[in-house]
Structure formats: structure tokens, C-alpha cells
Simulated scan of single mutants.
Amino acid sequence: MDSCGPEHIEVLDKKINALGDALAHLGQGTSLKELLRIIRFPGYTTPAEFAFSVAMLDSMALQTRMLEQMGDHLLSAAKQVGREQR
């Protein structure tokens, strides 16, 4: 099996760092902090808006768990590849 050259590693390095930066920014939770402030305004939500908000938050939480699981699987697979080459 052919191995990738340095240019492939550079592409992966950039993508991994960009994803890490995006996740770090997301992890600051600034949007959610602002949302917590807004929901306290008098008359913020109707029953329909409440249902929509709950559905969106549940979906975001599920996607966050899936993203964490995907990262774990990617790391686990990468560790297996590294062992095979040694």
C-alpha cells in the first residue's frame, strides 16, 4: 500500500487545525450565553416557539454527541493505522 506524501500530511494538518479552531470557538458558548439572556425577556416565547426551541436544542445536543463520537472513532482508527506501520 502506498503511503501519502508530505503534501497530504500538510492538507490533513490544515484541516485538523481548522476543525480544532472551529470547535474551540464553538466551545466558548457565546451564542448560547446570548440565548440564555434573551429567553428571560418578558413574553419571549409562545408554546410553538418553545417547542421549536426545545427541538433545536435537542438536535444540537445530539449532533454534539455524535461529533464527539466521530472524533473518538477517527482517533481510534488513526491509532490502529499507526500500529500497523511499526
Rank of each mutant, 00 (worst) to 15 (best):
Q69I: 02
G71H: 05
Q63I: 06
S53N: 03
E7V: 11
L57M: 12
E10R: 12
L67G: 00
M60L: 14
M70R: 11
Q85R: 06
T64K: 10
T64C: 06
A18H: 10
T45E: 14
K14Y: 02
A51Y: 02
Q63E: 15
G43F: 13
K33W: 01
K14L: 07
D13N: 04
L57C: 11
M70V: 10
N17I: 08
K15P: 00
Q69S: 02
M1G: 08
T46A: 04
Y44K: 10
G20R: 05
E10D: 09
M70Y: 05
R40V: 09
A18S: 13
R37W: 07
D72P: 00
M1I: 15
G43W: 02
G27K: 05
A48Y: 10
L36T: 03
V54F: 14
G43S: 12
K15I: 10
A22D: 15
D2E: 05
D72R: 14
A48R: 15
E7R: 05
V81C: 04
M56N: 08
S59H: 00
P47Q: 10
E7H: 08
S31G: 03
A18F: 08
G5D: 11
L35R: 02
L23H: 02
L32F: 12
H73Y: 08
N17Q: 14
L57T: 15
K14D: 14
A18Q: 11
Q28V: 03
L23M: 12
N17G: 00
G82Q: 04
L75D: 06
S59P: 00
C4R: 03
K15V: 13
A22T: 10
L23C: 00
V81S: 07
G29A: 03
G5N: 05
P6F: 09
R83Q: 06
Q85C: 04
D2F: 13
S31M: 06
I9V: 09
